[in-house]
Amino acid sequence: MTLPLPLIQALQVLIVAAAAPGINGVIARVEARLQGRRGPRVLQPYYDLGKLYCKETLAPHGASWVFLAAPLVAMTCYLTVPLLIPVLTAYALPLGDMGDILAGGIILAFASFMVAVAAAGTGSPYAQLGASRAKTFAAITEPVVLFVVFTVALVSGTDLPYAMAETVTTSAEQVVRPAHLLSAAALFMVILYETARIPVETHTGTNEFGMIEEARQFEHTGPYLALLRHGSAMKQLILFVIFLNIVVAPWGLAADAGLLAVVLAVIALLGKSVLLGGVIAVIDDSFAKLRLFKITEFVAAAFMLAVLAVITLYLGGG
């Protein structure tokens, strides 16, 4: 039985939206286990979101329309990106060539920009701190993403995510080439930063001075906060998908529109994401949070890896 392509495409978006909080739950659970605690249920993030979606909304006095629009815009962005990237299928879906990998990056950056603007508009010192810090470090992480994209584009000769994934799967040679390894490492570091994981931030929701991601949502409440939280989780899964299905391990994607293939692809995606989440949980437990000033060093290291990737590629070495 074959599924209509638009349905698969909708499924891509749905699976990201639905599975995202679960991945957070898994990471929290693994982390707790590694620390010898029982930890929260894997489904806990869903309960949290459900609770927030049902609460009333409060906005700070004098906050502009941006404050209320931002969570919606961000969510829209996060719902758009899965249309463009190979979440489930190895072939391009009807709207998949609507934008290339750069477009995906821009949409993600726009979401983050809107949230920062909203945070800056509240007048709350914590939220403003978070917003300005996020943008400061983004000044380095964005070029990293660009360089990774350049590497991808140089390797595959196109900037379409599907084509890149296909190139990686063609041979082992594509996997061991240094440009590929370096850009993967750089991307992984950016993902740690973007998803607010150790060594950049603690992801436990505790309020402290070093926070970035948490601080930006400080003034939002109720469904808006839920949208932001849900959005963050979705961003995490989207970045996982980009990392896994485009750069590192684009295996297990559905090769055709058959129901079985799609179901297997869903299972593979969840399996890979949980595995990656496990790795991140281990990192969370093994390293200490960096001091704020050290985060520059962390992202500078990612930048260096990305530049090296482009240079080695340019030299023909790989």
């Binding site: 390797v155 594509q174 061991v176 080439r177 390894l181 080695t312 590629l313 070495g317 790989g318």
Partner: peptide, 14 residues
Amino acid sequence: VAAPPGSYAGATTA
């Protein structure tokens, strides 16, 4: 399109 360098070359360069 940069041709892949081959796994020996790729591994050593890496």
